[in-house]
Design a protein around this nucleic acid. Structure first.
Lengths: 341, 341
DNA sequence: GTAGGGAATTGAAACGGTTCAATTATGGCA
DNA sequence: TGCCATAATTGAACCGTTTCAATTCCCTAC
């Protein structure tokens, strides 16, 4: 395989000039450039990545540690499609900027931090994208301490500055309430996710703002803290529908919870979208095959991937310090919502 | 960041010995080993990947070019989950062997070959996994010519030796026929995929063998060459059911085709699994939510990922030349098949 | 004719490991 | 004690780029 020295020799110039051509062609005179191009063509020359990054300190790679469930599952895991769309988005921007994605997995979950230390320590990548952010996320603390470029998909509750892209759950809720109001709803219930989660607070702020903006009254008996389970949807609905004046619409914490709501309605011979409008969150693939099809929020994962990669490149090249970006979820209107009777 | 020289100095030994420790600890005496370990611990030392692979010619990375659909789709694309499971399998074996996966995308489809040339030419990876094999696949020709380690998921019709992992569609069909026979079926129809595809021939061989093994008669009017479309399932079924003695069971080319079969039955007020047993191929996520749930073949993608990576490692390390591996598809029995009435 | 300055080019040093032939240490045995 | 085989260690050379200070080239202005 040809090296830069052979190219230089054939093009009758020095390796320094060839290197310049490779990295900043404008530094090279027209005639020299032509000869170098011919030599490169002749040898089908590609500069070796290892040599390049040894000296330049740039790998043109970014790191990503996939969350892989250990068991074999081809199930409806909503995260699956999400990850793939995310990857597609990241990959698109990466390719446009001549970057590759390095996927590193830990053999077991306990070793996950070791994977990040290795990615960083061995100089395998120029930056890292984090997903599945947790409260007090130690990966964030680690990378921040090392001053290594990274972007997180999701906000944590750490009191430090770092780059992230996240869903604007609050704006979503506002949008949903406005939509429900336009259908004539005023008695809107809300099954919130568990209080301990980051997204809950953001959505809750949106709920308050959305209700006041639409001049609707928040009623305590219409609020239940659930979790992401089917059961919490089922049980909350039971409680709601046994009130003297039950709500006419309910916002749930996610699609699975919304399925629980609908199961309860079915048992009570009530019809989703008619007796109670139901809105989910996530747009899992089942939601469009359910009977009735579920109105829900979709996260534009591909766009999130774009933004993650763009932010990371900005950081790597020192164009920005800690970019923050929020994206609106898409309200996908299907059959589980309808005008109030 | 510490280098191997600093480690050697602190451990009071030479860089050669430290390098030995890193790569083949058995070469280093116990006492020296201890001092080196302490020094590594002290500096939190990680050998730089670039320096390592510059001289050793091993990157500890394998390359994979994902097939990314350009449009934003969070649809039921059956390939999506497949790819993720495949990746999970590859990643697991890779991690166990201290390998990472390099994902490289082309900005547009026309440049795909360039991506492979770059992956190879820049020395970015030790080997490559190919998916979506096509007839006369130029990637295979290229990598073969360069004598670069690669494993393909799927067979092509090229008359050259290369490593692959593939589904044993023929064995699947035999299994399906044996299963149908056990339910009392003898009039079995088969909607084959298009003749031009590699898998068709393999499945067809299985069909012949399965029928003769079960002492069943192949009848020409029960054979239709379809494609992977819903429509071909629909129209073939119309033809079958208008015969004087219609079949009691039908094997289809894939799940989508099977859905077409069932739509036709519904129109004719016939019941899948009762009036006609239907077997799909692929186990797309819809197949278990269909009414009735579809009996179909699932590909064990995660296992395929294992095998791909294991084969590739064998080739990289010169343990095998062109490993071939076939895996059985899993017949998933659901509601669209039943005993003959 | 010459000074000045920008554009183009040069080549040695550096990046941080691995490799390997050569050297030294160690232990067993007569 | 001396000899030999084997284990352990050494360090210089090398991998193929980038980098940068120094040099050369070329043109313009005076």
């Amino acid at each position: 395989m040809a090296t830069i020295r052979e190219i230089a020799k054939l093009a009758n110039t020095s390796i320094g000039t060839v290197s310049n051509y490779l990295n900043e062609p404008s530094l090279v005179a027209e005639s020299t450039r032509k000869r170098i191009e011919e030599a490169i063509e002749f040898f089908d020359y590609h500069p070796k990545a290892a040599a390049r990054s040894l000296k330049s300190r740039f790998t043109h790679r970014i790191g990503l540690v996939p969350l892989i469930s250990s068991e074999d599952n081809r199930s409806e895991n909503p995260g699956d499609n999400a990850f793939l769309e995310l990857l597609a988005g990241i990959n698109t921007v990466a390719a446009e900027n001549k970057y590759d994605i390095l996927l590193s997995a830990a053999t077991n979950h306990a070793d996950e931090m070791k994977t990040y230390q290795r990615l960083f320590g061995e100089g395998n990548v120029d930056g890292i994208i984090l997903q599945g952010i947790q409260s007090e996320d130690e990966r964030i603390l680690f990378l921040k301490k090392k001053k290594f470029p990274f972007v997180a998909y999701g906000r944590s509750d750490l009191p430090i500055q770092y780059a992230y892209v996240d869903i604007d759950g609050g704006q979503g809720i506002i949008q949903a309430i406005t939509y429900l109001k336009s259908l004539g709803h005023s008695r809107i219930a809300y099954i919130t996710p568990s209080k301990s989660l980051m997204c809950t607070r953001q959505r809750w702020d949106g709920f308050i703002q959305g209700m006041s903006q639409n001049e609707l009254q928040i009623r305590d008996e219409y609020l239940i803290e659930g979790d992401f389970s089917e059961k919490s949807g089922y049980e909350s609905t039971k409680a709601f529908m046994n009130l003297n004046t039950p709500p006419t619409a309910v916002l749930t914490s996610n699609d699975v919870c919304a399925f629980g709501v609908m199961r309860c309605l079915k048992e009570m011979y009530l019809i989703p979208g008619k007796d109670l409008s139901v809105i989910g969150f996530d747009n899992v693939s089942l939601s469009q095959h359910w009977q009735p099809q579920l109105t829900t929020f979709a996260q534009p994962f591909r766009k999130i991937g774009f933004l993650l990669m763009e932010s990371l490149l900005d950081m790597i090249h020192g164009r920005e310090q800690f970019p923050h970006k929020l994206v609106q979820p898409d309200l996908i209107i299907r059959e589980s919502t309808g005008p109030v009777c």
